[in-house]
């Protein structure tokens, strides 16, 4: 079947749109971390967009930031979206405390030093984070 030449760029655009659009349907966690059981009670999940979470390694480090945070139950990181879904006990902690823990100094094992400003929370539950 004879095909007009414009079919080629049209197909390229169509498949590029399918690729980028299709990515929205996929959501594979980079890191899933369950912390120590924090007791019974209602739980809440806060969705954070964090500058500095850009790959599996940086997501692992961000997860380490919450290992001693009281009331944090679970973290699911989507590195390619710079996103951390943090489940916590509202009776023990709140998003502000979680944000402070993530943005706190990061212990660097290779140098044995604390690094500052590694992570910056830019969005909390879809709302731009204030300074």
């Amino acid at each position: 079947m004879k095909t007009p030449p414009w079919a080629v760029p049209a197909l390229v655009v169509l498949f590029a749109a399918l690729g980028i659009g299709g990515a929205r349907l996929l959501a594979v966690p980079s890191v899933v971390r369950d912390y120590a059981p924090a007791g019974p009670g209602p739980r809440r999940t806060v969705v954070l967009v964090v500058d500095g979470v850009k790959c599996t390694d940086t997501a692992e480090r961000a997860a380490n930031q919450l290992k001693d945070a009281p009331g944090v139950v679970r973290l699911v990181a989507y590195a390619s979206r710079n996103r951390l879904d943090v489940t916590f006990l509202p009776s023990v902690t709140d998003p502000a405390a979680i944000r402070a823990a993530i943005e706190g100094p990061v212990y660097d094992e290779s140098s044995g030093e604390y690094l500052f400003g590694v992570y910056k929370v830019v969005e909390v539950d879809g709302v731009e984070a204030g300074k």
């Binding site: 080629v8 197909l11 390229v12 498949f15 990515a23």
Partner: peptide, 26 residues
């Protein structure tokens, strides 16, 4: 490992799948 290689993600995978489809036609 049920996780992406460092610095890659859903967009890379979806674009690759789309590209396979495109190559089979165009």
């Amino acid at each position: 490992r049920k996780r992406f290689t460092c610095a890659t993600g859903e967009v890379n995978l979806a674009l690759f799948v789309a590209l396979v489809g495109l190559a089979l036609i165009a």
